[in-house]
Design a protein around this nucleic acid. Structure first.
Lengths: 203, 203
DNA sequence: GTCTATATGGGGATAGAC
DNA sequence: GTCTATCCCCATATAGAC
């Protein structure tokens, strides 16, 4: 009756190793030894590397939904929810510094591998994107909520990449503060928020 | 007397494959067959995978210096040079869509691998960063040129990552236009450009 | 300089005992 | 459900002929 538990442990270990070392560089032996089971036992639970990748991505989608629901519960105000999103950069600062953003780095790696699960990995991005768009809509920017959400997502990815490269905490703090100011400008309709002709968006 | 030529072809093929498929996923056989030489011959030129990685990174540094020098020559005005930087996103759009940014994706992959050449890969970022800072200095923002350069670099990385994920050309065009507007605001000291207390920077 | 042939290890995957 | 034993391929790397 310890099967389901072992399966969960495998997914957890694979999730962590795929993030820390990358999908291509993580072997079955790495995962198995991390969970303290034999390689043979591993194949009882997952028949291929692609199968465990699918399980890891599904688990990340569930985790992300749970995280967003927790933010919804903890922060009744949409503006505070956007700050919660910005704070993931510092909350996970040490991990991002060493391994990058789990969502962005997996999506890019699977793109290079032309892996069939690439779109499922991108779906984790979309969970954040849709949730961010909902907050901008609630703050009176329903018309371009999608573009604003993608802009904020874009910034978090850029900051994560540069923080991984330079490991500079001042850079992280500065850009997080700039993200907060940008959000304030966007939701208050300040002149700092310009609108283009065809593509409505904020600077 | 064809040795140097073969070596250059190996570096070129490895450069392309490390970018397209990733460092960990590229094998010697992939590189050798791409250059139409045998695996054995390969070892006459490079004794290990790390050695060819070092050669590829050195080559990328040279290419980047040449690119920046070409931009300097083609665009006498610093503002136009910044636009040239922004345009690499669309100039290399198809490649970025399929494989991400060569600089950012290699830096993140080597971070995950805890590879000794990680810092050399990051040095390519620094070539752009220093060059961008020079342009902002020339445009009257010498005091926070470094922060502005990193902000623009951050945006290009974020846009590249999201474009690789979503493959949405409207997103690319919209964010490139926003980068241009941000540059205009930064160099003209518009109210869209705010200054923080400790960390001077633009939104 | 370039080749073929080969040594050696690691990684994905299977068979079958317990 | 978990293990050991094993197969097979691929990848790095070397030896030596041409």
């Amino acid at each position: 009756m310890r099967g389901p538990q072992t399966r969960r442990e495998i997914v957890g270990a694979a999730d962590r190793l795929f993030y820390e070392a990358g999908f291509a560089h993580t072997s079955f032996a790495d995962i198995a030894s991390s969970v303290h089971i034999s390689r043979g036992n591993f194949y009882y639970h997952f028949k291929s590397k692609d199968e465990i990748l699918r399980a890891v991505i599904a688990h990340r989608q569930d985790s992300t939904r749970a995280l967003l629901a927790a933010w919804d519960h903890a922060h009744p105000a949409a503006r505070d929810r956007l700050s919660a999103f910005v704070r993931i950069l510092s909350d996970n600062g040490e991990q991002i510094m060493l391994h990058g953003c789990p969502v962005g780095s997996l999506a890019t790696e699977l793109a290079k591998l032309m892996h069939e699960s690439r779109e499922d990995a991108v779906a984790v991005f979309s969970l954040f994107r849709d949730w961010l768009a909902s907050q901008f809509s609630a703050l009176g920017r329903a018309e371009d909520a999608e573009a604003l959400a993608l802009h904020l997502l874009m910034r978090s990815q850029g900051v994560a990449t540069l923080f991984t490269a330079y490991r500079d905490k001042a850079l992280l703090a500065r850009e997080m503060a700039a993200m907060e100011r940008w959000i304030d400008g966007a939701v208050s309709g300040e002149p700092s928020c310009q609108i283009g002709e065809d593509n409505r968006t904020c600077i």
